[in-house]
Design a protein around this nucleic acid. Sequence first.
DNA 1: AGGTATTCACATGAAACTATTCTCTGAGTTAGG
DNA 2: TAACTCAGAGAATAGTTTCATGTGAATACCTGT
Length: 401
Amino acid sequence: MQNSLQQLFESYISNKPIFANKSALSIKYTPSIIPHREQRINQIANILAPAIRLEKPSNIFIYGKTGTGKSLVCNYVTSQLANLAKDKGIPVKTVYINCKLRKIADTEYRLVAHLARHFGRTVPATGLPTDEVYRLFYETIDDKEQIVLIVLDEIDKLISKCGDEILYNFTRISQELKNAEVSLIGISNDLMFIDNIDARVRSSLNEEEIIFPPYDALQLKDILAERAKIAFNSSAIDELVISKCAAYAAREHGDARRALDLLRVAGEIAERQGCSKVEERHVDMADEKIEHDRVIEVIKSQPTQSKVVLYSIIETCKNRKNPIYTGDIFNVYIGKCTLMGERQLTQRRISDLITELDTLGLINAKVISMGRGGRKKEISLAVPQASVDKIMGIIKEDLVV
DNA sequence: AGGTATTCACATGAAACTATTCTCTGAGTTAGG
DNA sequence: TAACTCAGAGAATAGTTTCATGTGAATACCTGT
């Protein structure tokens, strides 16, 4: 035992390390070159440029699927702008907020409170009327002449949750302020997002739209190659592996984030196995591992009731071959609740929980009409068979089964 | 045969309710002068 | 009298329940040939 450990550590030393600078593959990393996005960078820079002359730039809305470089480009341009402004002493402030983050900016109140805090006000987490928080925010930024650029990432999530009055309120901000000017940059994953907004709000926004198309496999390959140069030792990686990662990610609507994850995890696996080089099989393993980890992570973070529902679904799927529907699940769920002494929710709520599990990608729930048989959700598991036992284990940890 | 009306078993939407957390306010209480 | 305490009103939020309405197509029912 002792000996084998010795060997393990020694082999770690004798093998040339695979990574040179792993951070280049993380999401937070901002590369100095952003391939295939030169045009968008220029577009955004052009729109924002008036800020330097203290004129209010137009509002911008950026659309594109996940991993198309929206946030990256946006951060890049705004930080360049902020740097320049700082050097020249021009009062331009940029704020980046991710609206998806729970407990930070996922409601109107929290968003405005967060903004006010960013400008140095202390705002309680609850207790104040929303109008009051708006007033605090106005006051704070209006005390001197300045341009404020607010970047709202994943703004579609915010709007779908709290309605589009927020946007309307923001357009009104500019009218209320005497000294400062506020411009919005909205980033959305949902291409249809703008169509769901009230026409009046939309016209008062009079925004510029920029669309980020997904990367194709070749572009992904360029991006990966660029990062791999920094992240890996040159001998540890070859073009084949990179192509494979690019191809896998291109299969999923050209998600660069996914491609980078794939490459990083493949490298980690190779490292752990004591290989001196990343091989294609490591990419396959990485693909599986990422999916598996994601599923486990998602399930762990679910509230108890969702877990009970998922448990019921898994068990029913195991025992029965023919398709299963909401009603079946509900019955099993009732049984589970009495067994475990959990509170029973209504079928209405279970229906919603099932839909949530579907959007999380843990199950497939398709609404089908069976004529006289009624309208139902046809439910099946979406996780690989291999993970099922692990999942059951995790759920059981949390529940007294 | 062809057309339409019904009907099933939920889905989907909206509103209202519950419980918790937090602020703010003002009445009542206390301690020191 | 100033400082302090504490209860109650009012807000925001998450998670539900209640009530109401919507839905798609297999099937039952009718019509005219």
